[in-house]
């Protein structure tokens, strides 16, 4: 039978100092994805392989990994889309390893808690009504499945640990800031406390997002422009001081 060889990162930090790549030979099936191969290994070759998955449909964000060094969802990456030769599967490197392919992404929950939550404007008539044209921008960001692939690929998070919250969190802040019924502006917080200034618009996050959110163009750059309004543009600062409060 036709088969594929998959090289998988194995390491149990409790007992092993160094990780290693182990080759597994898996039967090839029409249309199979990398996650199918992983599940095959777990069921038929080595049940101690740790990995996380859930929906198998690219919607839960659990199966993030680096496939041939590209942050990807294992359930959405077809084996036949990868160049011939070996397939290398590694855990996402931006986060602490739990075991093999499972990583601990819980620091993201703490960051999300620090972003000021949705705060509706005062005196809104109930039920809240939002017209289509106004919900479109936030809606794009709501597609986020929190796979944290964008965080993993971002060089600021991966290599510099500079205190930048990361693209997923800018998406979150933007989804609230652009919400037509929200009353806050989080851009100054994002710039001063969440390290938005460390992002240099290099767009790797946009390249890997499985939900095809235009992270840089639609969330990061608009947040940067809003931060300019709040912090750097004298005319905008003057106008804002005249207007005081109130949603635009």
């Amino acid at each position: 039978m036709d088969s594929v060889t998959v090289s998988v990162y194995r390491r149990d930090p409790a007992t092993e100092k160094e990780g290693r790549y182990v080759d597994y030979v898996v039967p090839r099936e029409e249309g199979m994805v990398v996650l199918d191969a992983m599940k095959y290994i777990e069921r038929h070759i080595d049940p101690t392989l740790s990995l996380r998955w859930n929906c198998m449909a690219g919607k839960c964000g659990s199966c993030s990994a680096e496939i041939n060094n590209k942050p990807s969802l294992m359930c959405k990456t077809r084996i036949d889309s990868l160049k011939d030769g070996k397939i290398k599967v590694s855990p996402i490197a931006a986060y602490p390893l739990i075991k093999d392919l499972a990583t601990d992404v819980s620091q993201n929950w703490d960051l999300l808690k620090r972003i000021p939550p949705f705060t509706p404007r005062e005196g809104l008539e109930r039920p809240w009504r939002i017209s289509q044209v106004d919900i479109e921008r936030s809606k794009e960001f709501k597609k986020c499945i929190e796979c944290f692939l964008c965080q993993d690929v971002c060089h600021v998070i991966r290599e510099h640990k500079a205190g930048y919250f990361g693209p997923r969190h800018v998406v979150k802040a933007a989804s609230l800031d652009m919400h037509p019924l929200d009353s806050l502006d989080r851009s100054e917080f994002m710039n001063k406390d969440a390290g938005l200034g460390y992002c240099n618009i290099t767009k790797c996050c946009t390249e890997v997002c499985p939900e095809e959110i235009h992270i840089t163009d639609n969330a990061i750059i608009p947040e940067k422009e809003r931060a300019v309004n709040a912090q750097y543009d004298p005319i905008a600062i003057f106008l804002r001081s005249r207007r005081k409060g109130g949603k635009r």
Partner: peptide, 27 residues
């Protein structure tokens, strides 16, 4: 963006748009 070819990036200094490049904010 490939994760394996950035090996020295982490060792080099980086301030992004927080130092000198803050100038980008007056675009």
């Amino acid at each position: 963006c490939a994760a394996d070819v950035r090996l020295d990036s982490g060792k080099r200094g980086y301030t992004g748009e927080t130092g000198f490049f803050r100038i980008e904010n007056v675009h």
